[in-house]
Write a protein that binds this DNA or RNA. Sequence first.
DNA 1: GTCAGTGCAAACTTTTTGCAACTAC
DNA 2: GTAGTTGCAAAAAGTTTGCACTGAC
Lengths: 164, 164
Amino acid sequence: MKDKKLVAVERILDNYLEMNNHRKTPERYTILKAIYSTNGHFTLEELNEKLSTDWNFPVSRATLYNTLNLFLSLRLVARHRFQGSTKYEACYDNNNHCHQICTMCGKVVEVKSPEIDMAVENMHLRRFRKDGFTLYVYGVCSACQTLMTKRKKKESEKKKSNTE
Amino acid sequence: MKDKKLVAVERILDNYLEMNNHRKTPERYTILKAIYSTNGHFTLEELNEKLSTDWNFPVSRATLYNTLNLFLSLRLVARHRFQGSTKYEACYDNNNHCHQICTMCGKVVEVKSPEIDMAVENMHLRRFRKDGFTLYVYGVCSACQTLMTKRKKKESEKKKSNTE
DNA sequence: GTCAGTGCAAACTTTTTGCAACTAC
DNA sequence: GTAGTTGCAAAAAGTTTGCACTGAC
C-alpha cells in the first residue's frame, strides 16, 4: 500500500525533474522517502532529525527548505503555519485538510469530513481553478473546557470570600 | 454602523481588562480603534505605520505584538499566516473566513460563502466547542491560468524547432 | 566538462524576552 | 505605592541568500 504511494509520488518527482531539466539528486529522493514514511504533521526540524538518525542521510537546512518548497509546489507536501510553528505533511492523494485547533492549549487534531469536502467542491469561485483546501476550525477542546469551568468556579469562590 | 461595532469591541476589551485586572492603557484602545478603522487584511508593519502617521500615536513593536496577541485571544482580530507574510484583520461579528489563494502568484481574495458557513456549522466535532473557522482554498487564478497556457505553448514551439 | 544543486555561513525577517522606566489603578 | 505595561534593545526562531564546491547529466 505504502510502497504504491511512494512509487506514485516518485514518479511525479521524476517526471517534473526530467521535464524541467533538473537533477535527480539523492537528497531529493531520500527526503521524499523520509516524508512519505512519516505519518501526520512534522516540522522541518523533526524531518532534519529523522534524516540524520533514521536514514543516516544528513542534509543542510537550506536544502531542506529548497526541497520542501519544491514538493510544496508539486503538491506532494502541504504546509500549515500553526501558532508558533510551521508544520508539513505528506499530501499526495489528499489535498484536503480539516483541522480542529484548540485556542486555549493549541492542540491540533486532523479530522475527515466528506461533507466539507463536498461543500468546498460545490463552492462557486469565479475564474479560479480549485486544487485543494485547508480548513481550520477554532474552538475549545473538552479538556480546556473543563479546566475553564474549574477556574471560573475558583474565581467566583475567591470573590465571594473577598466580599465577605 | 462602524461606530456601533467599535463600541461593541471596546466593551469586550473593557470587560476583559476589568475582569482580569489589566490596565486600560491608551495604547490598547488606540490600537483597537486603528484596527477597526481598517478594512481587510493588514500586516503588523502596516498597522505600525498607520498608528504613527494617521493616529500620531507611535508604539513599539513589542507592544503591537502583545496587543495583537491579546486581541487574538479575545477573537477581536484574526491572524493569517500567508506565504511569506503574516496578516491580521478585524473579525468581530465575523469569525468565519474563506480565502481563495493562487498558488502561482500568491494572490489572496476573501470570499463569502453561506454554504460553507452552514457546512462547518453542521460539521460534527466530538467534544469540541466551535468558535469560528478559516478556510483556505488553493488553486490557480485566471490570470495565472492564461499565463501558464501561453508558456506551455511557447515551450512546445521551442521543442518543435529543436527537433527540427 | 558543464551547470544545477548542495553545504555552509552569513544575512535577513519575524517574533519573543529581559529590564528599566512609566503610569493606571 | 504597586503591579501591570510600555519601550528599547538584545536574543531567539525561522527562512533566505551568496558563494565555493560537488556531482548528475
